[in-house]
C-alpha cells in the first residue's frame, strides 16, 4: 500500500465515522462538531486529488463560516433533550419516503459507477484544481452560469437584509 492509499483509507473511514456520529449524537452542538470533522476529511480528499483551491475554499466557506453560523443558531436556541420537538407519525412517513427516494438515486448511481470501474481518479496528478487553471475554465467556458450564481447570491443577501429589517 502506498502512502496516498493509506491516507485515502484513513480519510474515508474518518469521514464515514464522523458522518455517522453527526446522526447519532444526542447533543446538536456535538453533531455540528462532527460535521466539521467531515468537512476536514473531505478537504483531505480534495488535496489527494490535487484540487488545492477546492480543498481550501471548502475549509474557509463550510468549516470556517457556515458551520460557525450553525453553531451560533444552535447556541441561541439552546436545544436540550427536554425541548426536543415531538416526532409525530406524519414526520416519520415523510422521512421514510424522502429517505427511500435518496436510496433509489444512490443505488442507480452506484450501478452506473460499476461501468466506470476501469477508470480511476488520478491521485496527486492532474492540474485542473490549481487556482490559475480553475479560474481560466470558470471565466471562459462557464462564465455565464458563474455570473448567474453571483446574481443569485446577491439576491439572497438582499432578501436576508429585507427580512431582517423590522417594519
Amino acid at each position: 500500500m502506498t502512502a496516498s492509499e493509506i491516507i485515502f483509507w484513513f480519510l474515508s473511514v474518518l469521514a464515514l465515522f464522523s458522518a455517522i456520529m453527526v446522526l447519532i449524537s444526542r447533543n446538536p452542538v456535538h453533531s455540528v462538531l462532527w460535521l466539521i470533522v467531515v468537512f476536514f476529511a473531505i478537504s483531505g480528499h480534495y488535496i489527494l486529488l490535487n484540487a488545492q483551491f477546492l480543498a481550501i475554499v471548502n475549509l474557509i466557506v463550510y468549516a470556517g463560516a457556515i458551520m460557525v453560523l450553525f453553531l451560533f443558531v444552535i447556541m441561541l436556541m439552546n436545544l436540550n433533550t427536554e425541548t426536543e420537538p415531538q416526532r409525530n407519525t406524519w414526520l416519520k412517513v415523510i422521512g421514510v419516503i424522502s429517505g427511500g427516494l435518496l436510496l433509489t438515486v444512490m443505488v442507480s448511481a452506484a450501478r452506473s459507477a460499476g461501468e466506470l470501474s476501469n477508470k480511476t481518479a488520478l491521485i496527486g496528478a492532474g492540474d485542473i484544481g490549481l487556482i490559475q487553471n480553475l479560474g481560466k475554465v470558470l471565466f471562459n467556458q462557464y462564465v455565464v452560469p458563474f455570473e448567474i450564481t453571483s446574481v443569485l447570491f446577491l439576491s439572497a443577501m438582499v432578501g436576508a437584509v429585507v427580512i431582517g429589517k423590522k417594519d
Partner: peptide, 23 residues
C-alpha cells in the same frame, strides 16, 4: 500554492475556540 488562502482558512477555524469555549 494556496498559501494565503490557507492562512485565511486557519484563521477562520480559530473562531471555534471562542465559540466552543464560551458555549
Amino acid at each position: 500554492n494556496v498559501g494565503l488562502l490557507f492562512f485565511l482558512a486557519m484563521s477562520s477555524i480559530g473562531v471555534y475556540s471562542i465559540v466552543l469555549g464560551g458555549w
